[in-house]
């Protein structure tokens, strides 16, 4: 083994990597926020509606779940170019992740809605709430509780998936790592440090979601 590890250039650019880690967190969080909103709406549509809107929702969900995430990113990156739509790398990653998250979360939420007994809805309506009040104040809080763990998992997946941004030219943690590695050719060292940062990010997400669950689900 005659390879000399050079860690110094990596540690010198550690601030850059950590900043890129924040970009990763930012895009993953944004995609989760949009994904949760779209997912809830889709779950409600899939359970309660008929007709073309329902078919649109079902095809979105099945496409998101049955094709590779990288394919989805490429589609938003290059496929839309056929229609003259050219997104910047940030929007490619955000759109791809949101598309994917919404598909998976919609299925989680559908399971969550099915787990709520009908009587909850009827009780809310007979208290004089209208349908949207009943959903927002009674049904959705309970659904969020049952899908809390799948949502945490999905957030972890969103962080891991955002690393695909590297392949569409987005400078999040992986993209930045690749950029810096190609300047110094210390590929292994840079990616090893990036792996550690990803690991820490994932552990922080899981740990904080567990802490938050103690606070949220006391009763």
């Amino acid at each position: 083994m005659d390879y000399n590890f050079h860690w110094r250039p990596v540690f010198r650019s550690l601030p850059d990597l950590l900043n890129a880690g924040l970009v990763t967190l930012e895009v993953a969080t944004l995609s989760m926020v949009f994904g949760v909103i779209i997912g809830i709406v889709f779950a409600i549509i899939r359970l309660n509606m008929r007709g073309p809107i329902r078919w649109f929702v079902i095809s979105w969900i099945e496409l998101a779940r049955n094709t590779p995430a990288l394919f989805q990113l490429f589609f938003f990156g290059f496929g839309l170019g056929a229609f003259g739509i050219h997104l910047t790398p940030f929007w490619i990653v955000l759109a791809g992740l949101t598309f994917n998250n919404a598909g998976y979360l919609a299925e989680n939420f559908r399971g969550g809605f099915l787990a709520i007994p009908d009587t909850q809805m009827r009780a809310a309506r007979s208290l004089g709430m209208n349908a949207s009040q009943a959903y927002v104040r009674v049904i959705i809080p309970q659904v969020l509780r049952t899908v809390y763990h799948p949502m945490t998992n999905q957030m972890v997946w969103a962080v891991l998936m955002s690393s695909l941004g590297m392949l569409v030219g987005f400078r999040e943690l992986s993209g930045e790592t690749q950029f810096l590695a190609s300047k110094t050719f210390r590929i292994f060292e840079y990616f090893a440090v990036a792996a550690v940062i990803y690991y820490v990010i994932v552990k922080i997400i899981i740990g904080s979601s567990r802490l938050l669950s103690f606070r949220l689900f006391r009763y």
Binding site: V156, S163, S174, T177, I187, A194, Y198
Partner: peptide
């Protein structure tokens, strides 16, 4: 906990 793409490159 580490993205597959990073594992592959490593």
């Amino acid at each position: 906990s580490v993205p597959l793409i990073i594992q592959l490159v490593l």
